[in-house]
Simulated scan of single mutants.
Amino acid sequence: MSKKQKNISNSIQPVLTVLGLLAIWQLASSLALVPEFMLPSPIQVIQAFISDFNLLMFHSKITLFEALLGLLSGVSLGVLTAIVMDRFTKVKKSIYPLLILTQTVPTVAIAPLLTIWFGYGILPKVVLITITIFFPVSVGMLNGFMSIDPDEINLLRSMGASHKQIFWHIKLPASLGNFFASLRIAVTYAVVGAVISEWLGGFEGLGVYMTRVRKSYHFDKMFAVIFLISIISLLLMAVVNVLEKICMPWQKQENI
């Protein structure tokens, strides 16, 4: 019973914190501590969200589609790269420094080049998302492979296990925790990457909508988009949590 109460308390505390911040925000807006055109109140943001709901849903479908495509390609490429680097030491020594180097280039600096090379369609957005999430997924999986006790691998080898059997029975299950941890980061990067790429070129999507309302000084609608992006990211993270419980049932048993 105490564990159940603890779980309920852990769920309520973040909600209370958010409600408290919203109350402070509303109070600051009501007292005009910040000009209304710079910081609209939460009520104004909700009204803007409701008034432009259909338009927001249309643009969110475009952004979500781009994010999912980039997520699928980035995760697939990252996992494949981690497997290859784990299997071949020379490949790891050659590729790993390049992975680190890719993180030194700002995403905002890459987006205009991709737009010039691939146009204003969906391709440059998917490429940018793939580049953004490729690093955390590949490094997360590789760290999972490297965290395995060498004695376990040596034991299977002494029993005549092949590389495929070692990977399937030891390395893959042991690396799932790292994979899902990096996947949580990847889903948020995917949505943010899609929005950033839409800022710099495109005709539809939340980033395009955000640019339009910013130019017309509708900051209440800008905040509505920000909240919508946060909600989408939280929903995607919830999906990842469900997938983790399905793929790692033993973790739930350990927590009991």
Results as ranks from 00 to 15, higher is better:
230 S>T: 14
178 N>A: 13
162 S>M: 03
111 A>W: 01
115 T>K: 12
240 V>I: 14
148 I>T: 12
150 P>T: 06
214 R>S: 15
82 A>C: 11
159 M>Q: 10
48 A>G: 14
125 K>D: 04
243 L>F: 14
167 F>Y: 11
157 R>S: 03
176 L>H: 11
200 L>S: 09
76 S>T: 15
145 F>R: 09
109 A>E: 10
110 I>T: 04
71 L>F: 15
173 P>M: 08
71 L>W: 06
252 K>A: 09
223 F>R: 04
120 Y>M: 12
200 L>F: 15
191 V>P: 01
116 I>L: 15
23 A>W: 01
223 F>W: 09
246 I>T: 14
35 P>T: 05
30 S>C: 02
200 L>A: 08
53 F>C: 11
189 Y>S: 13
16 L>V: 10
128 L>N: 07
228 L>Q: 10
107 T>E: 08
23 A>T: 13
149 D>I: 00
152 E>M: 09
52 D>M: 15
206 L>R: 01
142 L>K: 03
203 F>I: 05
42 P>V: 03
138 S>L: 02
220 D>F: 05
236 L>S: 03
105 V>F: 13
112 P>W: 05
11 S>G: 10
16 L>W: 06
36 E>Q: 13
180 F>G: 02
133 I>E: 10
110 I>C: 04
204 E>G: 09
15 V>Q: 05
19 L>H: 01
228 L>C: 08
130 T>D: 04
149 D>L: 00
97 P>A: 09
175 S>T: 05
216 S>P: 04
65 F>N: 15
39 L>A: 07
52 D>P: 05
165 Q>A: 08
